[in-house]
Computed example of a mutant assay.
Amino acid sequence: MASARDRVLDAYETLLIETGPGAATLDAVAAAANVSKGGLLYHFASKDALAAGLLARLRERSASDADAIRAADGATAYYLRTSAPGGGIPGGLTRTYLAALRVAEHARDATAVRDALAAVDADALGALRDRLGDPVLAWMVQLVGDGLYLRTLIGTPLPEGLSVDDLLARLRPQLPAES
């Protein structure tokens, strides 16, 4: 069972994604998490603290995903498949990332949000660079994954008749054997 802190962050993510930052009040988050407002305030003393908790969660999930990229049998395939619509990055990174984008819309400290999003970008690029050994190739793979990820975030399917396997088939001649 999820801790009260995780339930609060889950509820905050849901409200941000489904109704937007304006509707994600402390009262609404507490109600959605099925905790008292005092219980919410125990973990997050303010809305800014709640946003900071979300950004900390984003960084944790990003670091876990970078570890998964490094450990994957086929880092490029893992990265592109989990970036594509329906691919689903394990651990909720996509959902937390989308919620963080919504926080950015109304953040008092936009720098903290930009820094967290930049850390996600750097985590993935670093993991790809580690596995591919070529910084330009790693960046190219990341850019392809970014395009797929954007489709995931906005709900756009892949073009009819094309798949991630088609992308991988074109990229494989450029990739080291175990990437």
Rank of each mutant, 00 (worst) to 15 (best):
A116M: 09
A116E: 06
A116Q: 06
L117C: 12
A118P: 11
A118R: 14
A118S: 13
A119T: 13
A119W: 07
V120R: 10
V120P: 02
V120I: 05
V120Q: 10
D121M: 15
D121K: 15
D121N: 15
A122K: 14
A122Q: 15
D123C: 03
D123S: 02
A124N: 02
A124L: 01
L125T: 05
G126D: 02
A127G: 01
A127Q: 03
L128H: 00
R129L: 08
R129Y: 07
D130V: 01
R131T: 05
R131H: 09
L132P: 05
G133H: 07
G133N: 09
G133S: 08
D134K: 03
D134Y: 01
P135K: 05
P135Y: 06
P135I: 00
V136A: 08
V136H: 08
V136T: 11
V136N: 03
L137H: 01
A138S: 10
A138N: 09
A138Y: 06
A138T: 05
A138I: 07
M140G: 07
M140H: 12
M140T: 13
V141F: 06
V141E: 10
Q142L: 15
L143P: 06
L143H: 11
V144A: 14
G145I: 11
G145D: 13
G145M: 14
G145Q: 14
